[in-house]
């Protein structure tokens, strides 16, 4: 019987998990434990709906509604002095709850604080661009689209950034295999030589340990060295290994004690 492989998440899985094992949690602190964060959160809560907020590993995490993202970031930039958008991207939770988590990593240089603003959007929803606030979002949003296929509204130059323009699929989705799909496997061959060259070039070798014993064009045969491209018959003869020294490596084949001198004085 063929082994069942889930289609919605093709990432590598742990092959064994103790059935009684409970994953520990990274500790979360209340926002009120940090005065700076508490004030920031109050300012955000005054204008927008905050779904959840806590402090984890010295940074505040704020969950907002996806339609508020521009407003919240504008407020944070203009009033709360979070002047830099360090990073933004998405996390694929489609197989668990049919959503992408989008996070905006904000940095305030005057307060020396970092806040992560997060929101969740459904699969086919689009999100508003924050490119007008932070130019860095221009490229981040393009990368997010490239990797996850999340559309961004009102982006000035919306196209793929890392993958080629004619690429199919969004690589960081959990449904996308690490080694690529059929399109990815033949991409360069199709593009350069054409589809009919597939048979000549052959499929990619993805197995790290693949060795073809009888392929003398691509694999060296240690101990049984044969010329490049030689056909190997049954019962091949061993070919003499040549070393850099003229007559091979110097080896003592036989030691005759009578005809040799033993040195006792080391300083002679």
């Amino acid at each position: 019987m063929r082994r069942y492989v889930p289609k919605d998440d093709v990432q590598k899985k742990a092959y064994y998990t103790d059935r009684y094992w409970v994953a520990p949690q990274v500790p979360k602190a209340k926002v009120s434990s940090d005065s700076v964060f508490a004030e920031d959160l109050k300012a955000i809560e005054a204008k927008f709906k905050v779904l959840d907020a806590y402090i984890q590993v010295e940074q505040m995490v704020v969950y907002i509604q996806p339609e508020d993202n521009f407003g919240v970031l504008e407020l944070m930039k203009k009033e709360l002095e979070y002047t830099q958008l360090s990073e933004m991207s998405a996390v694929d939770f489609l197989s668990q709850r049919g959503e992408f988590d989008i996070f905006y990593q904000m940095l305030s240089m005057s307060k020396r604080k970092r806040i992560r603003v997060k929101c969740a959007i459904k699969k086919d929803e689009a999100i508003e661009s924050v490119e007008k606030l932070f130019r860095s979002a221009d490229w981040s949003e393009r990368e997010m689209y490239d990797m996850f296929g999340i559309k961004v509204n009102n982006h000035p130059f919306f196209k793929r950034i890392l993958m080629p323009d004619d690429w199919e699929g969004h690589p960081l989705l959990k449904t996308y295999p690490l080694h690529g799909d059929e399109f990815a496997a033949w991409y360069e061959v199709d593009k350069i030589f054409g589809k009919e060259a597939r048979d000549i070039i052959g499929p990619e070798i993805r197995d790290d340990a693949a060795v073809d014993r009888y392929d003398t064009k691509r694999f060296a045969r240690l101990g049984h060295e044969v010329p490049f491209g030689a056909e190997i018959p049954e019962g091949e003869p061993a070919v003499k290994t040549e070393y850099q020294e003229d007559d091979g490596v110097f080896l003592i084949e036989r030691f005759e004690k009578e005809s040799s001198t033993v040195i006792t004085d080391r300083d002679r």
């Binding site: 064994y16 994953a23 590993v57 970092r114």
Partner: peptide, 14 residues
């Protein structure tokens, strides 16, 4: 063989 299993959570470190 299996790797360490860190706690559930997220972190951004610069």
């Amino acid at each position: 063989t299996q790797g360490m299993r860190p706690p559930v959570g997220e972190v951004y470190v610069a």
